[in-house]
């Protein structure tokens, strides 16, 4: 593995670790939601990085090229299709988390998770 590719994967991993640090250490609910969003970004970026081909073209055929030369030049479309679903699911999950945050704020008057002690049904 060359130094370049190792470094770019490592930076992606650093981004993931920043999100994990935010989720573990912070006590504010909105900060925890932000940390989860950062982790999700890092995972999406990693999947796209895995499928990248050097000097590749986008996986969209135009009329000029035939299928063989296109397949020899294109980047991997499969991770892109999976990440596309993952991004939209991330939006839905973020909406659900924001709704939970709003409800908790109304019940307890704070975003601080150390003050949200009493659980009740």
């Amino acid at each position: 593995m060359t130094r370049e590719s190792g470094m770019i994967y490592a930076l992606c991993f650093v981004l993931f670790m920043v999100g994990l640090y935010c989720v573990v250490v912070k006590k504010n609910l909105v900060k925890i939601v932000l940390g989860l969003a950062i982790m999700e970004y890092a995972v999406n970026l990693f999947l796209i990085l895995i499928g990248y081909r050097k000097d590749g073209i986008a996986p969209i055929i135009d009329g000029a090229t035939d299928a063989k030369t296109f397949a020899a030049a294109s980047v991997d479309p499969l991770p892109q299709a999976l990440v596309l679903t993952s991004i939209v699911i991330g939006l839905g999950v973020l909406t659900l988390m924001v709704a939970l945050c709003i409800r908790l704020y109304e019940r307890y008057g704070t975003f601080d998770i150390t003050q949200i002690r009493r659980l009740r049904g």
Partner: peptide, 11 residues
């Protein structure tokens, strides 16, 4: 990360 394929050469 060392076990991963090269950046720019997908599997």
């Amino acid at each position: 990360l060392r076990e991963l394929p090269q950046f720019g050469a997908p599997l």
